[in-house]
Every structure is written in C-alpha cells, then in structure tokens.
Design a binder for these strands. Structure first.
Lengths: 239, 239
DNA sequence: CGTTCGCTTGAACTAATTCAAGATAAGTGG
DNA sequence: CCACTTATCTTGAATTAGTTCAAGCGAACG
C-alpha cells in the first residue's frame, strides 16, 4: 500500500504549502515522506480518529466530509492535486474533525505527526505558512456559512458548481466539465439541501440550455449564466 | 482612546494564547501592547479593512459578524475576556474577514502587525499555538456549518443559547442569565433564521417554563431542557 | 439479463418566512 | 413627571420554498 517516494522528479515545488523553499530543502522534505495510494472510495482517514498523518495529494480528487450523529453526510469540500490536508496532525492529541475519502483513484505523499512537527521546527516559515493556509480555509468556510444562512438553494447550487469548476474544471469543446464523479446526492450534501431539489434545479437549467448532465456527470455550457444566478445579476438582454 | 498598558498586574497569564510562557516573557509581551477601549456598539475593526491589529479582550463582550452584499448580517460568534482575536493580522496583506463590534463597553490589549510577527518569531511556540487556535475555531465553525445544513431551527436556537451560556453565562438564583444584551434579531442572525421564528420559539419555551425573557435579556431556568432539545434526547419522564 | 444504482417528476405536505398590526418597554426632552 | 418618540417584542394569518413520499425510468454492472 505504501512505498518510498521518488525524489528525482520534485513533485513538491508546485505545492503552495512548500513554496519558497529551495530544491535541497524540498528534496529533504520529500525524502521524509512516503507515497500512499488510495483507490476510489477508500478513506485516507475518518472523522474522530487520531490525527497521525499530513497529506499532500499528488493525483486524484478526494472529498472532505462530516457525518452527523443521525447519519446525514455533509460535504465540506474537495482536495485535488498539489493541495495539502491534515495539518491538524501537527497538534498533539488531535483527532481529525472530518473524513477524507478518495472520489477517484488517488496518490498522495504522507508525513507522520513527528515528521511534520520536525518540518515545522526546521523551517519556521512553514508554521506561518500553515497558519495562513488554515486561516484561508477558515475564511472560505465562513463565507460558505454565511451563504448557507442567507441564500436560497438555487444560488447555493450555482455557487457549488462554480467552486467545483475551480477545483476540478476540465475544458471541453462545448463548455467546462466537472472532472470528478458527482451525484445529485453529493451536490445536495454540499449545499445543505436534498437530492430532489438538486435534480429539479439541474433539470431546469438543462431545459434552459445552461448545462448538460448525466449520471454523476455535469458539463457546464454557459458558466456566465450560473454566475448570474450566483451573484443575482440581471438577466442578459438581447438589445 | 489608547494608552500604555500597565504591566504590574499581568493580565496575560489567563490568556490561553500565551499560556506556558514565563512571567518575564509575558511582561515583555504586555510591554509591547497598547490598551484600547471601545464603548458599546463601537467597532474594533470592520470587514474588508486591512488587518493591522491583533487583540486580546480584557473586559467586555464583542460580536464577530459578517454583512452580506444584500445587507443581511450574520453573527459568527462572540469574544469575551481573555480571548484573542485577529490573528489574521500576522499575515501580510490580509484584510479582516469580518467585523468586531463591542456589545458591552470593552477593554482590550492590542498589538500591531509588526509587533505580532515579531512575537511569533521570538516565541516560536506561539506560531504553533496560533495554528492550534485557528484550527480549533475552524473545527467549531465546521460543526456549526453542519448544524445549519442539517438541523431544524428550534434545535439551532437551543444550541446557540447553550453556547452563549458557555461564553457569557452568569449564575443567578433561579438559573443562568446570558450576560450580554441579546435581541431576538441577534439570535436570528446567529442561527440563520428570522426574528419572528426566534420570538415564537422563545415564547413557547417560556410557556413551558424553561426560561424567562425580556427586552434583550434571556434567563435560562432549566438548561437541561434546552440540552434535551439540542441533542434530541427523550423527554424526561416523572417515574 | 436481471439487478442495482442514480436520476426524474408529480403530488401532498410542512417548517419556516413574510407581512401586518398591535403591545410593551426604554429613552428623551419639555 | 408626563407626553412623545423610538426600538424591541409578540402574535395571527397568508404564503412559499423546499421537503418528503411514491412511483417509474434508464443506464451501468456483474
């Protein structure tokens, strides 16, 4: 399941968390990692288990989610190539506050808590980098919280799709495809609604020609229209 | 409006952020601060303005809130004595992601960005402490996000009240009073609902004898009942 | 080739919002 | 101290956005 990482291709220099470190440092850091693969649907870690590992995703997409006591799932977001996750492993006694599950086959570099803490001590800039990272995520989550508290479902779905375009958009001839398996249920769990409402909303948009959908597949033909819905702009007039 | 802080009473040793530092260090840190007062309703800082200052509240309670583009307010939480806020000032070029407004007369210690960064460098443990702090807040916010996405209004209001008891609960003869001016509108903005729904819900609870309310005032007589509603426990039987 | 899984759609329902009107309490100035 | 003003709170009635339930469709999969 795990193997020593190859250092000869420097996969870390695209990772924002490590940006600014020189090649020697990156090589050292990569050396301390182990490569880990996770097939689709496998969990990197699950909510409430001790936080022992920090990951940088190399390939694939993974889902950050929480399960409510009643068994309902809430999707907090996705992690893609060159994104890091699990900084909480730097904190002693911490447990993961959510689960990370591969939605496509994934490949990641992994560091244990001890190694991570050593890195933070050895390269003090990383501690500040980590702080900036978590703060950034915090701000994003705040905005989503506000969105959930104040916006209608339709707009929340539009926003979720636009975020997914940023995260995993793949340009096609006729628009942008969201390059990960995405069910109606997933979208519902991302926006705090039900799969029925998502289905109805997507159907409507499909009728209007904004997008095309299929089984776990969304292709956005006219992102501007989604943007208009998300931002409450006036409808484009033909004059 | 601001004056040099007095160091002779060491107000910092109760602040979790500085916990573990020796008295000499605390004195040094206090020396670098300035004392700042804010009368009720004054803003320490507002959303989107450059983050220049890190605060530790000494006295009073202040409200963290965001305003939506449409002008609706969302309350993210409260800050009380010995709690710190504005670590984002350590990040260059950052702006505050929300506003901090005094809800009672407040007194705080303040450090500018430069001083804060110097502290983080001088006492490396503080960087890790800051990381832990933000991570902790992040986890809390995640849970509230999940709550908002999955729970009914009644339960969200009960949870908000219980959190306020933790934050600003004052024991009275007949129960716990929430020791800050708290309108129905405030509670609505904390729970993503309307002031009407909050009013109806509190009225119902008052009829049931769980609490007493007044103008901007809530006294919780039977916290266990709120807890029952918040956690969906069975109703207490008299057997 | 049948079964599973994801998706759609209609119809009934309901939790919560919105609107409206009045009650209550707190400040303000004469 | 009282009248006046303002802000908060309450409650009913109408409305609605979104949920829930149910039934059926169609593509993928072993």
């Amino acid at each position: 399941m795990t193997e020593k990482a190859t250092t000869d291709q420097q996969p870390l220099h695209n990772v924002r968390f490590f940006q600014g470190l020189d090649s020697a440092a990156l090589a050292m850091i990569a050396q301390a990692s182990r490569k880990q693969r996770a097939p689709r649907d496998a969990f990197f870690f699950t909510q409430d288990e001790p936080a022992t590992t920090f990951y940088v995703l190399i390939a694939g997409q993974a889902r950050l989610s929480q399960i409510t006591p009643e068994g309902r799932q809430v999707i907090l977001g996705f992690v893609g190539p060159n994104q890091e996750v699990g900084i909480v492993a730097a904190i002693e006694q911490a447990t993961y506050p959510l689960s990370l599950q591969a939605v496509t086959d994934c490949e990641a570099l992994a560091w244990g808590s001890a190694a991570l803490v050593r890195l933070l001590e050895q390269y003090p800039i990383l501690a500040l980098r980590a702080l900036r990272m978590v703060t950034g995520r915090f701000v994003q989550l705040q905005n989503r919280y506000r969105e959930l508290a104040t916006e209608r479902v339709e707009r929340r779905i539009a926003r979720a799709l636009l975020r997914l375009v940023e995260q995993a958009g793949q340009c096609e001839r006729v628009g942008v495809r969201i390059d990960l398996p995405l069910s109606r249920q997933d979208l519902a769990e991302m926006t705090g609604t039900t799969l029925y409402t998502v289905s109805r909303t997507l159907s409507q948009w499909e009728r209007q020609g904004f997008l095309e959908t299929g089984r776990e597949r969304v292709l956005i033909r006219v992102p501007q229209e989604l943007n208009r819905i998300a931002e409450d702009l006036p409808e484009a007039s033909s004059s």
